[in-house]
Amino acid sequence: MTKIYELMPDIQGEEMLILQNLCRDYSEEKLRNFATIYRTRRKDPLLILVLTLVGLAGFAGIHRILLNQIGMGILYFFTGGLCLIGTIVDAVNYQQLTLQFNRRLAMEVHQLLNREV
């Protein structure tokens, strides 16, 4: 029986715990399906961090738009990342931001697979 961490070895920490919790009763095929779908739709925390740090150069808020928070993205863009404070906050908080997006995605994919059956 394949484990989820063998299919997605690059995911770590709390996200992995959530996925393990979610996929405990999955069959082999379903697990592989889940892994492929989740992997393609998932956002990498590193990408978010890099895009956040781009905000220091004047283009703030791209990461927020990428994480489906359009309102916050526009606010960041037009205020220079809330006078750079928001950018610094997001650079500290990037793991949590990405996790919020990813776990929501995990739930969505889970529902998608269950509905299919």
Binding site: G13, E14, L17, I18, Q20, N21, I85, V89, V92, N93
Partner: peptide, 26 residues
Amino acid sequence: WCLLNTFFACVLRTFSKKTFLSLPCK
């Protein structure tokens, strides 16, 4: 206020790293 906030955030972040993984997992 921003200085205060940023400082507060960093302190909170470092102190809470240990308990970061405590998810309601079996």
